[in-house]
Design a protein around this nucleic acid. Structure first.
Length: 256
DNA sequence: CTTATGGCCTGTCAGC
DNA sequence: TGCTGACAGGCCATAA
């Protein structure tokens, strides 16, 4: 089973590549002719030669590869994107950073839902990809009160709301399903009809699910992808429905 | 303002 | 055997 790059996978990637990337200088850049979700900025990428990586930050599901030249490479993995240190050459390799030491850093993306862009540091503050985003779910800003305020007078299902990156970043379909199971909340429930107490439980379980995903490689799977199975807790058949075009799984007994 | 939907993209698999 | 269609997902643009 392929794990979609939600917050935990992106954070694990950040922790893995930062120590290898920091201090490395770009000596060459190769790109594919394919466009990703956004066009590959050819000339901007080529102009990075000579820049040195100084750090890797994460914002939601985005990675920022920071350079000593007051620029940064913004990366989103989309569905199937990968950042790996290896020799380039695969048909799905879209950006290859040749480094002054070690293996090249390759952005590979089979379905091309991801993107690679270059920004000047001064433009990051107004970059829509970063400014339109909600709070980090593992930060102190993601409080029960914060979620409650966003739920007030909202008719939309709670699952759609917690997957809305302008509210809280990093939750994709798998973690949204699992967090709602943990909190005992049915995904279809209108956000505005949840009590503060239940929303506090949801905040708690979002945090738990994400932390487990970061500590281990894979998310806990209680409901996601178990449409043909019974609930691990109460043995009731798991229900599968479509919400906003996404497969949604829940236990009709444990989740109300 | 809020919320929903279409489209992007390819690999996999069921069904004919 | 080879084809077709459905499906998987994040997120932007667009529409209601």
């Amino acid at each position: 089973m392929v794990v979609i790059p939600e917050l935990p996978k992106v954070e694990r990637l950040r922790r893995k590549i930062e120590p290898e990337l920091r201090g490395r200088t770009i000596v060459g850049v190769a790109t594919s002719t394919h466009n990703l979700r956004a066009s590959l900025p050819q000339s901007r990428l080529q102009a990075l030669k000579g820049s040195r990586f100084i750090g890797v930050r994460r914002r939601g599901k985005y990675l920022l590869l920071e350079l000593d030249s007051q620029q940064a490479v913004l990366v989103h993995l989309g569905m199937t994107g990968q950042l790996v240190f290896r020799l380039g050459g695969d048909k799905h390799d879209h950006v290859i950073f040749e480094l002054d030491a070690g293996l090249p850093l390759v952005f590979n993306d089979q379905r091309r839902f991801g993107m690679v862009l270059v920004f000047n540091n001064g433009d990051l503050a107004t970059c829509p990809y970063l400014t339109r985003t909600g709070v980090e779910p593992l930060s102190a800003a993601f409080t029960p009160r914060y979620l409650w305020e966003h739920c007030q007078r909202r008719q939309r299902p709670i699952k759609n709301l917690i997957m809305d990156q302008s509210v809280v970043v990093g939750l994709g379909n798998i973690y949204a399903n699992e967090a709602l199971f943990g909190a005992g909340i049915r995904p279809t429930r209108p956000a505005g009809r949840l009590s503060p107490k239940r929303l506090r439980e949801l905040v708690r379980h979002i945090s738990i699910c994400l932390r487990v995903g970061i500590d281990q490689e894979n998310p806990l799977r209680f409901v996601y992808g178990r449409g043909d199975e019974n609930c691990l807790v109460c043995d009731t058949p798991i229900v599968k429905v479509k919400m906003a075009g996404r497969s949604t799984f829940y236990c009709p007994r444990c989740q109300r």
